Amino acid sequence: MAKERALRRAAREAEAAKQRARRARIVARRQRRRALLTRLMPRRRRTGRLLVRRSRGQRAGIAVVTLVLLALVWFLVDDIALRLVLTLLGLLCLPALVVVALGRRTS
């Protein structure tokens, strides 16, 4: 009985060793492929700044002009529904107006 168990255990261990070797080959292949791809792909150059498309002055100008226009809408328009509609319309159109006014730079 002990010999049979030892034989079965040896067979299980041999099968487990085959599976471990197979998994190790797969992992090694993945790592080699990933290393090759990282060597071949161009690196992304990140500047580490958020919103780098616009300079600090441009961003400040956009914010100031937006706030001034919203203040004008809220001071000059009496109807609250029209105020809300003009505010939402202005905020929705703001990105398009910024691109038209300042252009889209590609770095």
Score class of each variant (00 low, 15 high):
Ala60Glu: 11
Arg54Tyr: 15
Leu97Gln: 09
Val100Gly: 08
Leu67Ile: 14
Arg54Asn: 10
Leu67Ser: 14
Val98Asp: 02
Ala71Asp: 11
Phe75Gly: 08
Leu88Cys: 02
Ala71Arg: 09
Thr66Arg: 13
Val100His: 10
Val65Ile: 12
Leu70Cys: 05
Leu89Ala: 12
Ser55His: 04
Val100Thr: 10
Arg83His: 02
Val64Thr: 14
Val65Ser: 12
Val68Leu: 08
Leu88Thr: 01
Leu91Ile: 01
Thr87Asp: 01
Leu92Ser: 03
Ala96Glu: 09
Arg53Phe: 09
Arg59Thr: 07
Arg83Asn: 03
Asp79Ala: 03
Leu94Asn: 03
Thr87Cys: 02
Leu82Tyr: 02
Phe75Trp: 04
Leu82Trp: 07
Leu76Gln: 05
Val65Asp: 14
Leu84Lys: 03
Val73Cys: 04
Val100Phe: 08
Cys93Ala: 13
Asp79Trp: 00
Arg56Thr: 15
Val65Glu: 15
Cys93Leu: 14
Arg83Met: 01
Gly61Lys: 10
Val85Lys: 08
Pro95Thr: 06
Leu89Lys: 02
Val68Thr: 01
Gly61Asn: 13
Ile80Asn: 04
Arg54Lys: 12
Val99Ala: 14
Gly57Cys: 09
Leu88Ile: 06
Val77Pro: 00
Ile80Val: 07
Val68Tyr: 02
Gly90Ala: 09
Phe75Leu: 14
Gln58Gly: 08
Pro95Cys: 06
Ile80Thr: 09
Leu69Gly: 07
Leu84Tyr: 06
Leu88Ser: 01
Thr87Val: 08
Leu88Gln: 00
Val99His: 10
Val98Tyr: 00
Ala101Arg: 09
Arg54Ala: 11
Arg56Lys: 14
Val100Asn: 05
Gly57Phe: 13
Leu91Tyr: 01
Leu69Tyr: 06
Ser55Lys: 03
Leu97Asn: 08
Val73Asn: 06
Leu67Lys: 15
Gly61Phe: 12
Leu89Val: 08
Val100Lys: 12
Leu92Trp: 04
Gly90His: 07
Ala71Trp: 05
Ala71Leu: 10
Leu67Tyr: 12
Leu67His: 14
Arg54Glu: 15
Ala60Tyr: 13
Val68Arg: 04
Val73His: 02
Leu86Gln: 00
Ala63His: 06
Leu67Gly: 13
Val77Lys: 01
Leu94Thr: 01
Leu94His: 03
Pro95Lys: 06
Ile80Met: 05
Val99Leu: 10
Val85Pro: 00
Phe75Gln: 11
Gln58Ile: 12
Gln58Cys: 10
Leu84Ala: 13
Leu92Thr: 00
Leu67Trp: 14
Ala63Glu: 13
Val100Trp: 11
Arg54Val: 10
Val68Asp: 11
Leu70His: 04
Ala71Pro: 00
Ala81Gly: 09
